[in-house]
């Protein structure tokens, strides 16, 4: 008997990562399961810490972090742990929505409040929290188009996006609004469309080299993830591009997503063509996710609806043109603790 308990505890320890005092149940507060896809990622670490702090301070609720360990099977398993663990609510971060659907439906049947982060869970209709990527993408597109037109009024805009052409949320949050932003400034801009770079930075580099050799006229590039941007900039460098002349565009302007300390150097370097990046804030993200779940618990938001309701929280446009360098530095410090 004794041995079995030990074994069970061991199992729990591998699936759950308790942030803060494990086992100390809040007296009358709610217990919330907070899913992150991968706790080894700095963004998710900051997000988890903030969620724990914010929930306790504002709502007196206890947050337990579930680490998906970058493994979609693990994330799905964690859904089943929610019901077993007697939680009041969960905010999910799931890569394989199909696989998680039955678990989510079971939890709903057990009156556990479910919300999702980033993507809706199939047709369960649970509310989804997303950062307001679309607004940022639009603004970046518009800024880049404006900067290009000012520098090269005679050269027509040709844009391209590197990312996941078949991914619904990426398309609605990044690809499409970016193009709209560009077109809002220059309705004649040509959009080549999105290229699949899901294989990673080497793929991004290869695509940039191939594409810009055959279509050297491309001048606005949206690299839809920070690791792709590494490949994009390497490809541009190989072609002798990727440069600004003291703040003035030469051959192209590049936008990225997931602003971090590596990109900080480039965005504020007047001689690099990477000039804007979407800042995804772990602090606002965590707060938005907790707020949404409390709203559902308080009945302010319906627990399910026919098509998942989407709630947006703030994302930042980190830009050479519109955000001073010191502000960006402070932003990084606030969001990621230095």
């Amino acid at each position: 008997m004794q041995r079995r308990n030990v074994l069970k505890a061991g199992l729990l320890a591998t699936t759950l990562t308790f942030v803060g005092g494990a086992g100390a149940f809040a007296e009358d507060g709610k217990r919330i399961a907070f899913f992150v896809s991968d706790l080894s990622n700095v963004f998710h670490q900051s997000q988890a810490a903030e969620a724990e702090r914010y929930a306790k301070e504002k709502y007196g609720a206890e947050v337990v972090v579930f680490d998906g360990q970058a493994d979609s099977a693990m994330m799905t398993q964690n859904v089943d742990q929610v019901v077993a663990g007697g939680f009041d609510a969960a905010t999910l971060h799931i890569w394989d929505a199909e696989a998680a659907t039955p678990g989510v439906e079971d939890a709903l049947a057990d009156d556990v409040v479910m919300t999702s982060f980033f993507s809706p869970i199939t047709d369960t209709g649970i509310p989804t929290a997303r950062s307001d990527e679309a607004a940022v993408s639009f603004e970046m597109g518009a800024q880049m188009a404006k900067a290009w037109k000012e520098a090269h009024p005679d050269k027509p805009i040709v844009m391209v996006q590197l990312g996941w052409p078949n991914h619904t949320e990426v398309n609605s949050g990044r690809t499409a609004p970016f193009a709209e932003g560009v077109l809002s400034v220059d309705p004649d801009a040509e959009n080549l469309g999105a290229l699949d770079s899901s294989k990673g930075q080497e793929a991004a580099k290869q695509i940039i080299v191939d594409l810009l050799t055959q279509r050297p006229e491309v001048n606005l590039i949206y690299s839809e993830a920070s690791n792709l941007t590494v490949g994009t900039m390497a490809g541009l460098a190989q072609l002798g591009r990727g440069k600004f002349d003291n703040g003035k565009p030469l051959t192209e302007i590049v936008a990225s997503v997931d602003f971090d300390s590596v990109e900080f150097e480039q965005v504020y370097d007047p001689n690099s063509s990477l000039k804007v990046s979407m800042g995804l804030p772990p602090v606002e993200t965590a707060q938005g996710r907790i707020d949404l779940i409390m709203d559902v618990l308080d009945g302010k938001v319906q627990s399910t609806s026919d098509t998942a309701e989407e709630f947006f929280y703030k994302a930042y446009t980190v830009s050479y043109w519109s955000m001073p360098k010191e502000e960006a530095e402070q932003w990084l410090k606030d969001q990621f603790g230095g």
Partner: peptide, 15 residues
């Protein structure tokens, strides 16, 4: 093949 497909901006399925 890859390079030509990129130049034509084909969708991943077609590539």
């Amino acid at each position: 093949v890859t390079s030509a497909a990129t130049g034509l901006v084909l969708s991943p399925d077609w590539q």
